[in-house]
Nucleic acid binder design. Structure first.
Lengths: 162, 162
DNA sequence: ACCTACCGGTTGACGTGTCAATGATGCTAA
DNA sequence: TTAGCATCATTGACACGTCAACCGGTAGGT
């Protein structure tokens, strides 16, 4: 897949066309993310981070999860999660308590306020995804977007492993 | 382009497939952005914000620009730019002075340290873009990525205008 | 002349993210 | 037993972004 055409071989830097597409792509996806963020914020007073945490907890057994389990599930560093949980706890969306089974473990619990906030956020959030992403693209483009994401992810993973 | 197929008409929420692609897409592009950020950071001790500012100033007449002109050029809010320039000024990358021509205007100047930092950052940064983006995709996928970005941008602009 | 309204830019408060350091606790090997 | 060592989680310092308030000055309308 890499360097498939002769013209690409041996070149070190992107062409002007590639660079333009890169800029369009990275800036537009960033703008898309922040638009989603602000939609979620005004619809529900939640950030996408809050949403990710609440989603994971909602689907968990007993609406509770060990902290590092949660971090792994949503792909965050523990430090980030810890800061975020602190803010969410202040707002009453979750609670933390000592974990009975694992020493030194922290159990994160969904509060009723958290569950309700999540419930109220879901439909507007999904609707926003549809408006801003699904409806913006043709079915072919959606498939292509999935393939592009997969290819980029593979590259990121390959370079991380190395 | 929107609601092109009968099956899509009238539905409010994304399907499970669309949602999966959405998540892959938005998370992967976000990861790509932060990987680029950290590459730039370790190669050059610059953030992508620093890079954008330095790039604009490098290309400007006299390597200087009015503050709000600069903000418009790179598409930032004035407040964001002001904060960022404060940090960059502390590090000696730029300088600010009263603008001679426009009363109440601030002129942003590139320092020699800033120019050198930018010069040293360019090649590694472009190389990283090639490795992480261009080389990860087939030529067709790059074209598709450009078209997807264009379509998403059009949607964002349309909804912002409304 | 005066009041108002905008304009360019800064500031403060706060949410968010990363990195490195710190505690607290168990596991393992000399 | 004890000296490391990894693991789980938190913390502090700092960079970055947004929002709203603010400040100083210019321009228009009366």
């Amino acid at each position: 897949m890499t360097d498939a055409t002769p013209a690409r071989r041996g070149r070190q830097l992107p062409t002007a066309d590639e660079l333009r597409i890169w800029r369009d792509f990275i800036e537009t996806t960033a703008a898309l993310g922040s638009r989603l963020e602000s939609r979620l914020q005004s619809d529900s007073s939640l950030s996408t981070g809050d949403y990710a945490v609440l989603l994971a907890l909602s689907e968990a057994q007993g609406q509770a999860m060990r902290s590092s389990e949660l971090a792994a599930h949503i792909g965050w560093e523990r430090s980030r999660l810890s800061h975020h949980l602190g803010r969410m706890e202040r707002r009453g969306l979750i609670r933390r308590q000592e974990c009975a089974t694992v020493p030194r473990g922290a159990e994160v619990l969904l509060t009723t306020a958290g569950a309700e906030a999540f419930k109220g956020a879901t439909v507007p959030h999904l609707r926003a995804i549809r408006e801003l992403f699904v409806d913006a693209l043709t079915p072919d483009q959606i498939v292509a977007a999935g393939e592009i994401a997969t290819a980029l992810r593979a590259r990121l993973d390959a370079l991380r492993a190395e």
